Computed example of a mutant assay.
Amino acid sequence: MPVISDPVQFNEEELYVDLRAALGLPLYLKCEGFNFAGSIKLKAATEMVDAAEREGRLRPGAVLVESSSGNLGVALSVIAASRGYRFLCVTDARCNKPTIRLMESLGTQVHVIDEPDTLSGFLGARMAYVNALCASDDRYVWLNQYQNQGNWRAHFRTTAPEIARRFPDLDVLFVGAGTTGTLMGCARWFWQRRRRVRIVAIDTVGSVSFGGVAGRRMVPGLGMSVPPALLDESYVDDLVRVEESDAILACRRLAARGFMFGGSTGTVISGAGQWLAEHAHQALTAVAIAPDLGERYLDTVYREGWPADALEPEPAMARLA
Rank of each mutant, 00 (worst) to 15 (best):
S264W: 00
E244Y: 09
H281M: 11
G221A: 02
R303A: 13
H279I: 04
L284W: 08
G223V: 09
V242Y: 02
A286P: 01
R216C: 11
A272H: 07
G262F: 01
D292Q: 00
V268L: 03
C251W: 05
E233A: 15
D237A: 15
V219Y: 05
F261L: 13
V213I: 08
V301Y: 03
D238P: 03
R303W: 09
L222C: 07
W275P: 00
C251F: 04
V219A: 06
F259H: 14
T265L: 04
D246A: 15
A272P: 08
L254K: 00
E243A: 06
Y302E: 13
L249P: 00
L222V: 07
P227W: 05
V287T: 04
G262C: 03
A272Y: 05
D232Y: 10
E233V: 15
D246M: 09
A283W: 09
R303K: 15
R216I: 11
L254R: 00
G211I: 07
G212C: 06
L276N: 05
R253S: 12
G305S: 07
E304T: 08
G305R: 13
Q282V: 03
G266Y: 09
V287A: 02
E304S: 12
G211N: 04
V226A: 15
V268S: 00
H281S: 14
R303I: 01
F259R: 08
V301Q: 09
R296Y: 03
G221I: 01
T267A: 13
R216W: 08
A290R: 00
G223W: 06
G221N: 00
G266P: 07
P228I: 06
L293V: 10
G273Q: 00
E244W: 03
L249Y: 04
P220R: 05
Y302F: 15
V301G: 05
G258L: 14
C251I: 05
D299S: 05
A256V: 12
A229P: 03
G305E: 10
E295L: 14
I289M: 01
R217T: 10
G271C: 11
F261C: 08
A214P: 11
H281G: 06
